[in-house]
Design a protein around this nucleic acid. Structure first.
Lengths: 141, 141
DNA sequence: GCTTGCTCCTGTAGCCACTACAGGAACTAA
DNA sequence: TTAGTTCCTGTAGTGGCTACAGGAGCAAGC
C-alpha cells in the first residue's frame, strides 16, 4: 500500500487531482491508515494511471467513467468502447480542421502586418464592418 | 443607439456575454436610457464585433485587451500586433501537432477493437503497467 | 524524548470564458 | 389596459483542475 505521494508518482496524476477525482467519485475512495492518510493498492494506482492516459488522449471525464464501468464488467464490451473512441476521433478531427482554418485566417490577416503603414491592417480588418462575415448568419447563442 | 438585443444581433455576441464583458471591463460601460437600459452606439457595437472576431480566431481575452488598447492609439502599432499574432500562431500549430499525434495514438489503440475478443484490447492497453510510458518521466505537476 | 522538516489532511477559493437561471422592472403593440 | 417581449441585477454553475491556509501525522537524527 502506498501513500498519496507515491500514488501520484506512480500514476502520473497530481496529488490535488487525485483528491479531486475522489471527491467527484471518479475513482473509488481508498482505505485509510490509522492516522487518517489515504492508502492506495497497486490496482487503485493502475486505475489512476488509466484515467490519466485517457485524459492525455483528450477523453472527457464522463466518457472515462463509462470506460471504468466497462472495465468492471468481465466482457470489456468492445463495441461500446470503439463507438466512443470513434466519436472522440471525429471531435479531434473537427478540432484539427477548425484550427487549420483558423491558422490560414490568421496568416492572411497578419501577412500585411509589416508594410510600414501606421494603422495596423490586421486590427483594421477586424474592426471593419463586413469583413469575412456571412450576412445570413444570425446571432449565435 | 441600440438596445442590448440589437447590439447582440449586430455584433454576434450573446447578450449575457456582452454584460459579462462589461462587468470584466473588457469593453467600456455603455450609456443608459431613462429607464436604465444599456444603449450602444455603432462604434461600441463595432468594438463588440471586434472582440468576437478575435475570440473566433482563438485569442484569449487578455490579448484582445491589448489589441483594444492598441486600437485606441492612433498608430495601431503593427509590430506588437504581429508578435502577438505570431505567438498565437505558434500555439495553434502546437495544438494541431498535439491533436494529430493524439489522433494517431487513438487510431492505433482502437484498431484492434473489433477482433471479437471478450476483453477490449484498447482498455487493456490503457490499464497495463508500462504501456506507452516513458519511464524517465517524473510525475508531471 | 525532542526537534526538524517533510508529507499529508480538510476546506475553500480561484482559473477561463462564459452560460443559465430567478425574480422583477420597463417598454411596445393591440 | 393588458399581454407579451425585452431588459435589469445578482448569483451560481460549467470542466477539470490548481492553489492556497491552517493544521496534524510521521520518520530520522540528536
Amino acid at each position: 500500500m502506498f501513500a498519496i505521494g507515491k500514488a501520484s508518482e506512480q500514476s502520473g496524476v497530481n496529488i490535488e487531482t487525485i483528491r479531486y477525482y475522489e471527491r467527484e467519485g471518479i475513482v473509488p475512495k481508498p482505505g485509510r491508515s490509522a492516522g487518517g492518510r489515504r492508502l492506495y493498492s497497486p490496482d487503485e494506482i493502475a486505475k489512476l494511471r488509466f484515467v490519466r492516459r485517457c485524459r492525455d488522449l483528450g477523453f472527457p471525464i464522463a466518457i472515462i467513467q463509462t470506460f471504468l464501468s466497462l472495465t468492471e464488467q468481465d466482457d470489456r464490451s468492445c463495441g461500446e468502447v470503439k463507438t466512443l473512441a470513434e466519436n472522440h476521433l471525429d471531435e479531434i478531427n473537427a478540432k484539427i480542421e477548425n484550427l487549420t482554418r483558423l491558422r490560414e485566417a490568421l496568416l492572411s490577416l497578419s501577412a500585411n502586418c509589416d508594410d510600414g503603414t501606421a494603422a495596423c491592417p490586421m486590427l483594421n480588418s477586424l474592426m471593419k464592418d463586413g469583413f469575412g462575415e456571412d450576412r445570413s448568419n444570425e446571432c449565435r447563442h
